[in-house]
């Protein structure tokens, strides 16, 4: 029943679905969740780096969006507006607790080896393991960035947002986005320096 209702919305713009929800068809909100949940979840995970917390925060973002729907004026894309809410949920969450690093790079110690996939030494059988290792290292490096650099970097590099969109989400100037991206990239390179040098040399 719900699916048949949802399928009616398949070719309808987000803003029209928002109007339906505001008219009282609250089930239509499910269509918006289906359309945007993966991207919202990815953004939240990129910013938080923890599965359970990301799940909770992504749900919270949708609930907040549902409550705030009356305030959505359609001046920006619904996805941009939703992302802003998700990012703000993450920023509030990060502020409310000391950022938790699930595995810090420091914990690997000085003798930690860069994954061979970086250096092109990996055999096919190792690729899966190496890739997981690489994922973990990148997550750790992201976790070690300051919040403002991390958020800006994730929105640009992982989410592929334009500078204008990032500036809109973070309520800052495009110049600030440029500056944060530059500094964030520089910091990331410093964090990954040893492994990165090996990778570059390879």
């Amino acid at each position: 029943m719900r699916d048949s209702k949802s399928s009616n919305f398949s070719h309808i713009e987000d803003i029209q679905i928002v109007a339906r929800v505001l008219e009282g068809n609250t089930e239509a909100f499910s269509v918006l969740v289906k359309r945007h949940h993966e991207r919202v979840y990815n953004t939240v995970y990129s910013l938080i780096g923890d599965l359970d917390e990301s799940d909770d925060l992504a749900q919270e973002a949708f609930l907040k969006a549902f409550h705030a729907l009356k305030r959505f004026r359609g001046q920006s894309l619904f996805s941009t507006w939703l992302h802003r809410i998700a990012v703000n949920c993450c920023l509030d969450h990060l502020k409310s607790k000391h950022r938790r690093s699930f595995v810090s790079l420091d914990e690997h110690g000085e003798n930690w080896d860069a994954p061979r996939i970086w250096m092109g030494q990996s055999k096919d059988a190792d690729v899966g393991v190496e890739r997981r290792e690489l994922q973990e290292i990148l997550e750790c490096a992201l976790n070690d960035l300051s919040e403002e650099y991390r958020v800006t970097f994730v929105l640009r590099e992982i989410e592929g947002l334009a500078y204008e969109e990032i500036a809109e989400i973070l309520k800052c100037s495009i110049g600030t986005v440029k500056s944060r991206l530059f500094r964030g990239r520089t910091k990331l390179r410093e964090i990954l320096q040893v492994q990165y040098d090996n990778w570059i040399e390879a």
């Binding site: 949940h37 993966e38 979840y41 990815n42 995970y45 990129s46 599965l51 799940d55 992504a58 970086w118 890739r131 690489l134 994922q135 990148l138 997550e139 590099e157 992982i158 990778w199």
Partner: peptide, 11 residues
């Protein structure tokens, strides 16, 4: 390097 990184999908 970061393009190769894919955040996990929601369940």
């Amino acid at each position: 390097l970061f393009a190769a990184w894919s955040p996990p999908a929601p369940d």
